[in-house]
Design a protein around this nucleic acid. Structure first.
Lengths: 245, 245
DNA sequence: TAATAATGTGTACCTTTTACATAGTAGGAT
DNA sequence: ATCCTACTATGTAAAAGGTACACATTATTA
């Protein structure tokens, strides 16, 4: 049989043993890190914990952990969330992977960042663990690893995401006033919005349920309380066509 | 000295040796896979290659490779693109990681998906390599690994992205007619758009440069040719506030 | 009871989107 | 040459949505 060049017959040698192939692959340690945002005192906060590492003594880091053998990334992130906050009914979204070779002082570790939002008052933190606490996003600095970069990126992700999806309601009590809702948007987007137009916008979406209750214990005229109509939202997710850049 | 519980004094034992810590971490094989889109004959295409694996004999897969020791994910993706298409001046965006434990028949391999767009006519493919070719996105099926899922996700990413960023121009010739631009948007978004409103939209953005040339060799009245004004776009990137879901 | 600090609604204006109409021009068939 | 075809190119009116305002109302508290 006449020899063919590799260019002509590239399929000659298919790899039979996939297991053997994968065993020869280089391997890297992989972690997940969770940027868990909350809202309190009209400020956006993020859950941080003191670093375990002497190298980063006194610096805060995000909640994270190693990805276990055969564990999905999503599952690893949910596990971290559950272990630290007791929550397991919270949404969690992958933002992106961070892979700078020097991002970890112990050698190469790649991490996948996740973002989550939760209502601070709904969750008792296990605060005995390494000074776990809510830290204002705007005053964060000197974080361990590249966690400041991760927080910044997750925050940008959140700013964009909250405008297109009803994420914000995860940060608020079940019943909330329009003022609380607006405060949330203003804090996250770092803008000030016209109160009347903001209300009109949400009114026109028709996704808030007026529950005929009023705010209690506010030092001024109380506002109406609303719930978000998740059911209606799920039924009528819009597909969005609008070229604009 | 009185003993304290772990809850009271959690910082007692900081980890001194970060290197040792990382050495104990479980490790996983990591790859990048690139969904590289092109546009031809009014169809959105994606670059695929026949799988090396006997297990997936005859099935197409995306272009991908192992991430090397100390290589950034972005660099690995650019390397794949360069090796396969000869291009190194193309943008490439991370979409997300895929980590299902059974996604690779050889055992656990996590992959990070990247998305890129390029002009089919600008790049000579090294088509001797395993039947590398452009495949219509709409008729793709039976891909190796979870690559169909990756393509689907990258396609969704692209649909959203192209509405907010001027990505589409990477798929077109440098000089293009408005009809070509509209065909591109219609193909990617899978909608039909009103021609007059489409033109008005781009006219109002004022980012197309009329180069005073006409189409050649079209079997009908030729249209004007334009270039995209990347320079102006870079100067005037808008920050977008518009709650809507 | 008056000042304060909110809530709750309305309106006029402007911009953008949508739906649709008409005129013009190159190529090809006859 | 003339007409048909298949586009380009532009315009316009109505609807929808966003912006910038003003004013009356209602709890609280000083």
């Amino acid at each position: 049989m006449k020899r063919k060049t590799a260019a002509e017959k590239p399929h000659e040698h298919l790899i039979k043993d996939a297991k053997k192939l994968v065993l020869e692959y280089p391997k890297v340690p992989l972690t997940v890190d969770c940027a868990i945002f909350g809202f309190e005192e009209n400020k956006l906060k993020v859950l941080v914990i003191k670093s375990d590492l002497e190298y980063y003594k006194g610096h805060y880091s995000l909640l994270g952990d190693i990805v276990k053998d055969n564990e999905e990334l999503d599952d690893a992130a949910y596990r971290v969330l559950k272990e630290r906050t007791g929550m397991n009914d919270v949404f969690l979204d992958q933002v992106r992977a961070f892979s700078h070779p020097d991002r970890h002082p112990g050698g190469r570790v790649i991490t996948v960042a996740y973002c989550s939002l939760l209502n601070i008052n709904h969750h008792q933190l296990k605060i005995h663990d390494n000074d776990l606490n809510w830290h204002s996003v705007s005053t964060l600095k000197d974080m361990a690893f590249d966690h400041k970069e991760i927080v910044d990126e997750c925050y940008s992700w959140l700013q964009k995401r909250i405008q297109e999806h009803p994420l914000g309601f995860n940060l608020l009590p079940e019943k909330f006033s329009l003022r609380e809702l607006q405060n949330l948007y203003e804090a996250i987007l770092a803008v000030s919005l016209d109160r009347r137009n903001f209300r009109k916008k949400f009114a026109s979406m028709d996704l808030l349920i007026d529950i005929n209750e009023m705010e209690q214990d506010v030092p001024h005229r109380p506002g109406k309380l609303y719930k978000f109509n998740f059911e209606k939202y799920e039924k009528s997710k819009r597909k969005w066509i609008g070229i604009d850049f």
